[in-house]
Simulated scan of single mutants.
Amino acid sequence: MSSETSPKPRRLLRILGALTVITAVLAGVLYFSLYRSDRRVDDSVRAAVTDTASQGAIALLSYRPDTVENDVGSARNRLTGEFLDYYTKFTTDVVIPAAKESQVATQAAVAASGPVEVQADTARVLLFVNQTTTSAAKPDPATTATSIDVTLTKSGDNWLISGFDPVQPHE
């Protein structure tokens, strides 16, 4: 009689043991994927990446003919990776000559901004930017509104812009 009842408690103990192991594994996975303190992002990080993206956009999109080399040089200090290479070539080949020859001046202002995705070492911020442009041929200011998806990469203690993509409106 005792031999008939003993398999049930053993089976129950095995099931409880298996559930305990599964629960421990699940807790570990959640900790390492969601709650690790070295991967946690708080509101101050979100504010920092949003400010960095906003100030960077203003630097990238604002220049005057008489200071364009310095303006572009200062903006380059905020960039990294392939985007730095692209920006350097584009400003050397297009922006600096146009600013000097046609007296092009631009001034950007961020109308609104917000973080889209923020992780420990990468972030994306959406910016709504108004840019006012004048030139010798068109001295009356022309203002354009653009939405920009800015990608940032952490380098040491600093966030640098690694992507700067205008958002195309959906039709």
Results as ranks from 00 to 15, higher is better:
75 A>H: 00
135 S>P: 11
168 Q>N: 02
74 S>D: 06
46 R>T: 01
117 E>R: 10
31 Y>A: 00
152 L>S: 06
115 P>E: 06
26 L>T: 09
29 V>F: 01
152 L>A: 09
105 A>W: 01
44 S>Q: 12
127 L>F: 05
88 T>G: 04
65 P>H: 13
2 S>W: 07
139 P>F: 10
146 T>L: 10
169 P>W: 00
107 Q>T: 10
86 Y>E: 08
157 D>C: 04
126 L>T: 02
35 Y>A: 12
130 N>C: 00
11 R>Q: 14
77 N>V: 04
147 S>F: 04
84 L>S: 06
53 A>N: 11
7 P>M: 05
68 V>S: 01
18 A>H: 02
29 V>A: 12
104 V>E: 06
41 V>C: 04
98 A>R: 15
71 D>W: 00
55 Q>N: 12
80 T>R: 13
147 S>D: 02
131 Q>T: 13
171 E>T: 08
144 T>Y: 10
57 A>H: 05
22 I>P: 04
93 D>F: 08
138 K>R: 13
115 P>L: 07
119 Q>P: 00
117 E>S: 02
78 R>T: 13
144 T>V: 14
124 R>Q: 05
97 P>K: 03
68 V>Q: 07
157 D>Q: 12
69 E>Y: 00
139 P>L: 13
80 T>E: 15
131 Q>I: 11
48 A>E: 15
159 W>H: 07
162 S>R: 12
130 N>L: 10
133 T>G: 06
59 A>N: 09
16 L>G: 13
126 L>K: 03
129 V>W: 03
145 A>M: 08
82 E>M: 03
152 L>T: 11
87 Y>G: 01
127 L>D: 03
57 A>I: 08
155 S>P: 12
25 V>A: 05
111 A>T: 08
7 P>Y: 14
1 M>H: 04
163 G>N: 04
63 Y>K: 03
23 T>K: 01
123 A>D: 05
42 D>N: 09
136 A>G: 15
128 F>T: 07
139 P>M: 11
101 E>L: 07
142 A>C: 03
99 A>Q: 02
82 E>G: 14
60 L>V: 10
23 T>S: 11
91 T>N: 06
93 D>C: 06
123 A>E: 08
138 K>V: 08
110 V>P: 04
134 T>D: 14
156 G>S: 06
48 A>W: 04
38 D>A: 12
20 T>I: 15
19 L>P: 02
35 Y>M: 02
42 D>E: 11
166 P>M: 05
14 R>T: 14
23 T>E: 06
59 A>W: 02
156 G>W: 01
47 A>M: 12
19 L>Q: 05
85 D>C: 03
21 V>G: 11
81 G>P: 13
93 D>E: 15
19 L>T: 02
144 T>A: 06
56 G>R: 12
112 A>K: 10
151 T>E: 10
34 L>K: 03
104 V>H: 10
149 D>H: 02
55 Q>H: 13
112 A>D: 04
34 L>V: 00
137 A>F: 05
160 L>W: 14
56 G>Q: 09
86 Y>A: 08
90 F>N: 09
121 D>S: 15
65 P>A: 11
96 I>W: 03
108 A>Y: 02
61 L>K: 02
7 P>R: 08
116 V>P: 00
124 R>D: 05
